[in-house]
């Protein structure tokens, strides 16, 4: 298999490299890709959508339909991980508790846990003590990461950024929290149900905006028909419409990152994990 694989790959690679000889040079401003379609986007983004960041305007307006399904793809992934992995937490019976006054660790089988006790603290099976520095540093950082993420979402019109990038950063901040303390602490703040509902809400904001345009106007996702609702002209309505769907993308991406992380890190038990 290895030899066969190597031969196939060398052949394919040689063929691919041979075909690159016909390519336009790297960075050639006269290549078809640079002169056929893209000048339209560059020259008309301001008059069409009033968004200086062309990537944002193409992403969320000219090709907004792609982006809606991009959001749907991650919803699909979240649902897929849930469907494949999730097992009810009730079925997990073995748990470890730390008796804080003495430092003794106890293992409980069955469901006779010391619920609501002041002296017993639930710990993971691979629990490591003395993580105070990591914990504290991360707690300090997470706020700034999240504020930065909001900036990235909100400033997608004018600078590199947008819903997807901002959503990933927020999601990463919460995953950082889960890593630095533990999975249960994170689930207590943002549960799985909330993550799932946020994901669906994010996609719903996007698709719902599209459907609203279709109901009051004539095309799916044609934001200019939102102008009367938003109280602006048709061009600015496109700009605002882009912002609305970017928020949808951010919410969906943020939530789905967390949801997938919960399921993957605990193998679906969501009881303990990384």
């Amino acid at each position: 298999m290895k030899i066969l694989g190597t031969i196939t790959i060398l052949l394919c690679g040689g063929l691919l490299i041979f075909f690159t000889s016909d390519f336009p040079d790297f960075g050639d401003p006269k290549s078809p890709a640079s002169i056929h379609l893209s000048p339209y986007f560059i020259e008309h983004t301001l008059e069409d959508t009033a968004v200086p960041n062309i990537v944002t305007s193409v992403l969320a307006d000219y090709r907004s339909y792609d982006t809606m399904f991009e959001t749907t793809v991650i919803l699909t992934a979240g649902l897929a991980c849930f469907l494949l992995l999730r097992i009810p937490t009730k079925e997990v019976t073995r748990r470890y508790y730390l008796h804080e006054p003495t430092g003794v660790t106890l293992r409980f089988d069955g469901d006779r846990y010391p619920k609501g006790s002041n002296v017993f603290k639930r710990i993971d099976s691979n629990w490591v003590p003395y993580d105070i520095i990591i914990n504290f540093t991360c707690r300090l950082l997470i706020h700034f990461i999240q504020i930065f993420a909001l900036y990235v979402v909100a400033h997608g019109h004018y600078s590199p950024g947008g819903g997807f990038q901002g959503g990933v950063v927020i999601g990463a901040s919460i995953i950082l929290f889960a890593i630095s303390s533990n999975l249960r602490a994170s689930i207590k703040r943002l549960g799985e149900k909330a993550a799932a509902i946020f994901t669906a809400t994010g996609v719903f904001i996007y698709a719902g905006t599209g459907a609203l345009c279709m109901v009051i106007g004539e095309h799916f996702l044609n934001y200019s028909f939102l102008a009367p609702l938003l109280g602006t002209d048709r061009i600015m309505a496109r700009s605002h419409g882009i912002f609305i769907v970017e928020i949808g993308v951010a919410v969906a991406v943020m939530a789905v990152m967390i949801w997938i992380y919960y399921n993957l890190s605990s193998a679906g038990k969501q009881d303990e994990g990384l």
Binding site: A33, L37, S38, F41, I42, I54, V55, V58, L59, R63, D66, T67, E70, V73, I74, T76, A77, G78, A80, C81, F164, V253, I260, L264
Partner: peptide
């Protein structure tokens, strides 16, 4: 800008497949 837009989508698809 167009390839960048396409690749934003492709990155997301890649992440989803990885998950």
């Amino acid at each position: 800008p167009l390839p960048h837009v396409l690749m934003l989508t492709a990155i997301v698809v890649g992440v989803a497949t990885l998950g």
